[in-house]
Design a binder for these strands. Structure first.
Length: 610
DNA sequence: CCCCCCCC
């Protein structure tokens, strides 16, 4: 095989990686052998790697890549591209921690040329020792360096002292730590050294699967971040000892796939604390463990993200509304909230709803810079943001993004032309929310959630079902239930368990509405039915029995008209069957000026995101 | 094992 056809190795990459771990490229290396270090629960492979100039015996294959070995993809002389790695210092003497071996953990490896094709060792690499210096025996042979004792790395001899999970402090030398980025569900002998960046309140739940309580915490180290959840016994055990901002050694938690839907924490996995989990406060120098990490999204880019995404955003709060008290529809509880207007140097503004204490305590008078971690993106009024219980709100944080924004705002940004991606509730005619076609609503599977979805559509009334459009309802103000005609001049309401001498007409209208993409059957109750037919239920009800021609005419005149419908879609149980039910929440005449302005705005946004 | 996060 002609070596010139192979990609050249990243000469000198290995000492650079071992030296400071900050090698910015994806090194091309050659495999010169491997050894299986049988772990307690897993095979673990140590790999001799070469950059053509130096070879190093302390490459370690992340266990989730063991299949590469099994598949024969890392045979001798294979050329690999190392797409992700981390350097981990391991104490060689657990008691003193003084001697450190540096391990290069290969987290993402792509075999580039099979060893059989390369067929030889490339170059004449010198062996580096475990500290990264050229080994004294200046190896010129191709034999791997002696394979040392790797048990420390496997963790079995270096687990933190177990104090039944509590522990007060830890001697630095007791503990060999692993980077967060190297954690996977396939290995469970690890200890991380992490700073807690957020801790939730204790929450209880009760559902068909049972009930219990839990809290969660977010944490990070130099390599990444991860969320952990503690249930029931572990919730009681750990809630009080864990404080935001402090550093802990954590080991023996379970790892499982993270559900990205609920967090902006950048990790494919999250921890669940178990009865074996240990959490030990760290009182060493913890200055190298960062305190929080944001992944800011410029406000202008929020328009291209999916609704319900959890994001990090930073901006200047230029104005705020008063605290409002609203009543939750689901819990009937009073909730306090404050809406604020936030801008950033993309000259874009977004509305942000701060719930509960966050809203009550917020003071916008100084127009502060606010950094948000884990805020929820809604599609109300175009796009808007809302805090959730796990959102971290930092006012005027000391970070470069904040200082830059302050500078931008104070030097002209505050008066620059800003376009808002949130429709203001005051300026509009009452209808915030996103606009969709029926085709889009279908594609997005709207209504397939526990909670109803809302959207607006411009559509035409195609057909109205006149049958059962009206019904005789209980005459009391509070009750609109159907009454039964007793045929003796009395009407019985089963709900009120009473008979009345009269009734009132109510409407429940089945209407077929259509846009350019699809047609859709929707239900209009009283108010929206009256708006659509242009007459009160009372008037229509009387005509029904007295003037059939007039009655029919009302329905004819209401068809083929265009409106803006605000629709509410939800899956509902009907005769033991799940059915998508679409109700008309609001029906409005089309304001063409407003409508066209919105279309133009949307076209511009589309063009910008091309 | 939660995953509710509320309003229009």
């Amino acid at each position: 095989m002609n070596r010139r056809n192979h990609p050249s190795l990243s000469c000198g990459a290995i000492p650079s990686i071992i030296g400071n771990g900050l090698y910015n490229e994806t090194p091309i290396l050659q495999v010169l052998g491997y050894k299986n270090l049988q772990g307690d629960n897993n095979d673990r492979y140590r790999i001799l790697i070469s950059d053509g100039k130096y070879s190093y015996a302390y490459g370690m294959l992340a266990t989730q890549l063991n299949h590469l070995i099994a598949d024969g993809k890392l045979e001798n002389f294979t050329i690999i591209r190392v797409k992700k790695f981390v350097v981990n210092k391991v104490a060689t003497k657990a008691t003193t921690g003084k001697e450190q071996k540096k391990i290069i953990i290969l987290l993402d490896v792509e075999p580039v040329v099979p060893g059989s094709e390369v067929g030889e060792k490339i170059g004449n690499p010198q062996t580096l020792n475990d500290g990264g210096e050229v080994a004294e025996e200046a190896a010129t042979n191709s034999k791997p360096a002696p394979l040392g004792n790797m048990n420390n790395y496997n963790g079995s001899k270096s687990a933190p002292v177990n104090n039944g999970g509590y522990g007060h402090s830890a001697e630095k030398s007791d503990i060999v730590t692993h980077p967060i980025v190297s954690l996977t569900p396939y290995q469970n002998k690890w200890t991380v050294k992490v700073r807690v960046t957020n801790k939730s309140d204790i929450r209880t739940w009760s559902n068909s699967r049972g009930e219990g309580k839990l809290f969660s915490l977010d944490m990070m180290d130099e390599t990444g971040e991860i969320r952990a959840t503690a249930f029931n016994a572990e919730c009681d055990k750990f809630y009080h000892m864990i404080e935001i901002g402090k550093v802990y050694y954590i080991s023996q938690a379970q790892l499982k796939a993270a559900n990205k839907q609920y967090t902006s924490i950048k990790n494919d996995y999250e921890m669940t604390f178990s009865q074996n989990t240990t959490v030990i406060a760290c009182h060493d120098d913890t200055s190298s463990i960062p305190s929080i990490q944001f992944n800011f999204v410029p406000i202008v880019q929020l328009t291209s993200l999916e609704k319900d995404s959890i994001v990090d955003v930073i901006g200047v709060v230029k104005s705020a509304n008063d605290v409002r008290v609203i009543v939750s529809k689901t819990t009937n509880k009073e909730l306090r909230m404050r809406e604020v207007q936030m801008v950033d140097s993309s000259n874009t503004e977004v509305n942000l709803t701060l719930w509960g204490k966050m809203g009550e305590e917020f003071d916008a008078s100084s127009q502060p810079v606010v950094a948000l971690k884990g805020v929820k993106l809604s599609d109300f009024g175009g796009r808007s943001l809302g805090t959730v219980s796990s959102t971290v709100v930092q006012i005027n944080p000391d970070m470069s993004e904040a200082h830059k924004l302050r500078g931008w705002f104070d030097n002209g940004g505050s008066s620059s032309a800003v376009s808002s991606i949130s429709t203001s509730r005051v300026a509009g005619t009452g209808g915030g929310g996103s606009y969709k076609t029926f085709g889009e609503a279908k594609l997005e599977n709207l209504g397939n959630n526990d909670k109803p979805d809302y959207y607006n559509v411009k559509a035409m009334v195609a057909m109205i079902n006149k049958e059962r459009a009206l019904y005789m309802a209980c005459p009391t103000d509070e009750c609109n239930k159907k009454v039964i005609d007793q045929n003796n001049g009395l009407y019985r309401c089963e709900k009120c368990q009473r008979e009345f001498q009269d009734f009132k007409w109510r409407m429940m209208l089945s209407v077929n509405i259509a846009d350019a993409t699809e047609q859709q059957w929707v239900t209009c109750f009283q108010e929206t039915a009256e708006a659509l037919l242009g007459k009160s239920a009372d008037v229509i009800g009387r005509l029904k029995d007295t003037d059939n021609n007039e009655f029919q005419k009302i329905f004819e005149e209401a068809t083929f008209k265009w409106y803006i419908f605000r629709l509410r879609v939800k899956m509902e149980m009907y005769n033991d069957e799940n059915r998508l039910k679409t109700n008309v929440y609001e029906v409005k005449e089309i304001n063409y000026k407003e409508h066209n302005e919105r279309l133009i705005r949307e076209m511009k946004e589309m063009a910008a995101s091309e």
